[in-house]
């Protein structure tokens, strides 16, 4: 279960010459629910763009298993990325197509299945995310939470080995967010997929995260990593603790920090 699935090797990300994050080095193992966390604007979503082949790293590389994503030629990269599914922050469903057409799009493109089976797969994926019967709806006709779940159904269309999520629970009420977490966990367990998730939703981080990396905007690099629960108890970095406790003054780590300030 601990075979490396995705390796980020000495990667630097930049817009032009403006460096966002540098010296990123970590491994995502098969079956992980890997959390990319950090404050707003630290480059979490940019990191995701690099992992899914939308943005070229300034330096360094991303390895899928043994294969390099960024040294590869276009057809190879396309093949590698076919094993991944991405759920964008707002679902990113194509608004001119119904949910069924959205999900059928990659299936029809990449498999030789007949229309009957494609229809069955679409219904199955929608049922998986709790949207049975919504095949003929347009994205604008359903709620934000449903759009997100439909986006998840599309991300899973080709049974990817790695699922990427950009802030899956942003804009959802706590109950819907919990249901989405459970769904992600259920899918990971049953499909054996690896999940990589950008989020700063603490509840989700602790509930389902098995491994993580913490990006810091000031030092422009990763300053912590590991299981989130373990990070909370073992990390000595005040930034990480403050993040994981929402800056809660009652937490012992923060308390000492505050008291120092009050006493001085």
């Amino acid at each position: 279960m601990t075979a490396p699935c995705l390796t980020i090797k000495n990667m630097t990300m930049a817009y032009g010459h403006f460096i966002i994050q540098q010296d990123l080095d970590f491994t995502i193992n098969r079956g992980d629910i890997f959390i990319i966390m950090g404050g707003s604007g630290c480059g979490k979503s940019t990191l995701l763009m690099h992992l899914i082949g939308l943005q070229h790293p300034y330096k360094g590389d991303v390895l899928y298993g043994e294969e390099s994503l960024w040294q590869a030629d276009d057809p190879t990269r396309k093949r590698i990325l076919k094993q991944t599914g991405v759920l964008f922050q707002s679902g990113a469903l194509l608004s001119s197509m119904t949910l069924a057409e959205n999900i059928a799009l990659p299936i029809a493109e990449y498999t030789k299945l007949g229309s009957q089976r494609i229809r069955q797969i679409v219904s199955y994926k929608l049922a998986l995310v709790g949207l049975a019967g919504f095949e003929d709806y347009y994205p604008s006709e359903i709620s934000g939470g449903m759009q997100k779940r439909a986006g998840l159904a599309r991300a899973m269309a080709l049974d990817p080995e790695i699922l990427f999520f950009d802030e899956p629970s942003a804009g959802l009420d706590p109950i819907s967010a919990k249901l989405l977490d459970d769904l992600i966990l259920g899918l990971r367990d049953n499909l054996g997929a690896t999940v990589v998730m950008v989020t700063h939703e603490l509840a989700s981080i602790f509930a389902i995260g098995t491994n993580s990396v913490f990006l810091d905007a000031e030092t422009k690099t990763m300053i912590a990593g590991g299981a989130p629960k373990k990070l909370l108890t073992e990390s000595l970095d005040p930034k990480v603790i403050r993040f994981l406790t929402r800056g809660d003054a009652n937490h012992p780590e923060n308390n000492t920090h505050h008291q120092d300030r009050y006493n001085s």
Binding site: A127, G130, G133, L183, D189, N190
Partner: peptide, 21 residues
């Protein structure tokens, strides 16, 4: 087990009455 889990997910949320067009 994986298949059983997925099947339970599929049948977890019954189709909403009147949703289908």
């Amino acid at each position: 087990e994986g298949i059983q889990g997925l099947l339970s997910l599929v049948y977890a949320v019954p189709e909403r009455v009147g949703a289908r067009r």
